[in-house]
Amino acid sequence: MSKKEWPLWEVFIRSKQGLSHKHAGSLRAADAEMAINNARDVYTRRSEGVSIWVVESANVVASDPSEAGPLFEPANSKAYRHPTFYDVPDGVSHM
């Protein structure tokens, strides 16, 4: 029997309507439909979600950790880019 493993999939779960999909983890599955089934069993057993996305991990393009400096550090000293100078009215959730 071949020892070849199934491809790896990244799983994204939307926990409720109106929120965005969040990365939940990864798993192995033979194809997209089975990946959805497996994600349902592995990540939504306790009603964690209302929607699932799966993406083959090979298709994810990631930033290079060695470029973290040029990519992220210039933002560090620019506090005025953060919307922290406003009062958020009570009753506004998910901000």
């Binding site: 798993l27 192995r28 497996n38 069993d41 592995v42 057993r45």
Partner: peptide, 11 residues
């Protein structure tokens, strides 16, 4: 046979 199916079957 694999972790994912183990969980699926016990579910």
């Amino acid at each position: 046979p694999v972790l994912e199916e183990d969980i699926a079957l016990t579910n």
